[in-house]
Design a protein around this nucleic acid. Structure first.
Length: 408
RNA sequence: GGGGGUGUUCCAGAGUGGCCAAAUGGGCCAGACUGUAAAUCUGGUGGCGACGCCUUCGCAGGUUCGAAUCCUGCCGCCCCCA
């Protein structure tokens, strides 16, 4: 199957990409691949440290998918050994507790399932970098370290920042970029995908490749996707992410929280909607644009129609006044009630699990967030006696609620 | 090995003997407003059957009527010298 023309390929590759380094080599590489009918080897590495693949990860993954569609070879690296170190990027402090290999393997399997939602794994190579790192001797390791200077290392943003802030930098963390660069050598990468913060490592990989006489890879770097706060990078530890395995409605709620300003970025990086169409959407009502964004992405990671369903449900329950359709049930034992079957309001909230302490419940009520029943009658005071009945609705603010169930 | 710093409530960061459950900012929670659960504004943000009481300022002791603040030892981290 012939590859599309270099120009066509470039247009697709460049969409939503912030930097290609070195840019001028890319066309030549594509040209050569086309002439020799050899697919390029596209590398993307992930460390199985957590369990949730989120939209931030899907930015390079989607790029990978596009490369696959162009006929190139996807090479996924599961960083089961790099995970032992923990990626220093984008983190201000070293991971406090390191993961065990067993845990990492469990995560890796889970990761692949999630990655498979974007990338066609049947056509991809998957490697674990432990395959080549596990058996290295100290001499081998020294030899790798021999190629990087401390000054270079300290040039990296994350290390520089930590150094400036007088935060610890551990020696093993310095091996992270070295290992990642060596991965590129092992799998003979032509192109590596990642975020712009990877520049240093990507270039280090080029040094390594040159040293052993391999063609050098090109870094294709996406901008950092900002999280729900609209400012910081999307990340698990920051709690500002949308996971691709989250239920449709959960995703929907998160999407609608997005600040308007980041919508364009999301459209460009996470969808394949043509730019002109994005302009049209954004010039309309922001709410509608956001709905479209959410629908389109949710549909991609869930069954067809899931996005539309979630959108209309959001419209009813949040935008409108319909009752939520997923009200959790909280069991209250009759033994906890007084002789009249009542409970003071603050106590009730704690027993129902809506608040973690009596003091918290008191604050909530004092601020007008405690409400009762389908008509949301406001509770006036924390010691107000509430007659507890089966099926009573209890509201702790707008987001937390439950239906009571009396048990013996 | 020597010297100098530093460790505060979710985070950052004030506080150097009583006025400290501890300033301020961020985050978070609630309320108002809104096309939105965004932005903005307002209030709140250790616990307790609660105008009082209890626990908290790296850990363990000590001094004192009284300690986050002073002393001793230990632990972690940072910097400089070697």
């Amino acid at each position: 199957m012939p590859f599309p023309s270099v120009e066509e390929q470039l247009a697709i590759i460049r969409r939503g990409i912030e930097q290609i380094c070195p840019e001028e080599e890319l066309a030549a590489k594509l040209q050569k691949s086309r002439e020799t009918d050899t697919p390029l080897r596209i590398k993307y590495g992930i460390d199985p440290t957590g369990i949730d693949v989120h939209l931030g990860h899907t930015v390079p993954l989607k790029k990978m998918q596009q490369f696959q569609e162009l006929g190139h070879q996807a090479v996924i690296i599961i960083g089961n050994y790099t995970a032992l170190v923990g990626d220093p990027s984008g983190r201000d402090e070293a991971r406090s507790s390191r993961l065990s290999l067993e845990q990492i393997e469990v995560n890796a399997k889970d990761y692949l399932t999630q990655v498979g939602k974007v990338v066609d794994l049947n056509k991809a190579e998957v490697h674990r970098n432990g395959d080549w790192f596990a058996s290295l001797s100290l001499a081998d390791i020294l030899n790798l370290c021999n190629r990087v200077t401390v000054a270079q290392m300290l040039n990296r943003d994350d290390f520089a920042k930590r150094f400036r802030d007088e935060k610890p930098i551990y020696l093993h963390e310095c091996l992270y970029p070295v290992m990642q660069a060596q991965d590129s050598v092992e799998i003979k990468a032509d192109i590596e995908l990642g975020g712009t913060e990877q520049l240093f490592t990507f270039m280090l990989a080029r040094d390594f490749q040159r040293e052993v006489g391999l063609p050098q890879q090109i870094g294709v770097m996406s901008p950092i996707l900002v999280g729900l706060d609209g400012k910081l990078r999307m990340g698990k530890s920051l709690g500002n992410y949308i996971g691709i395995s989250e239920p449709p409605y959960e995703m929907m709620k998160k999407f609608m929280q997005l600040p308007d300003e980041v919508m364009r970025m999301y459209f460009e990086l996470l969808t394949t909607i043509p730019f002109e169409e994005i302009d049209t959407l954004l010039s309309g009502h922001p709410k509608d644009a956001k709905m479209t964004l959410a629908r389109s992405i949710i549909n991609e990671y869930h069954d067809a129609g899931a996005g539309d369903e979630a959108a209309s449900r959001w419209q009813d329950e949040i935008g409108g006044s319909a009752l939520p359709s997923d009200i959790p049930v909280a069991a209250i034992s009759r033994g906890d009630l007084d002789e009249d079957g009542c409970l003071p309001a603050s106590k009730l909230f704690v027993t129902a699990g809506l608040n973690s302490s009596n003091a918290e419940a008191r604050r909530l009520i004092a601020q007008g967030g405690g409400k009762l029943g389908e008509d949301k009658t406001k509770i006036e005071s924390f010691d107000q006696k509430i007659k507890v009945e089966d099926g009573l609705l209890l509201w702790a603010g707008k987001k937390k609620y439950c239906r009571l169930e009396l048990t013996e």
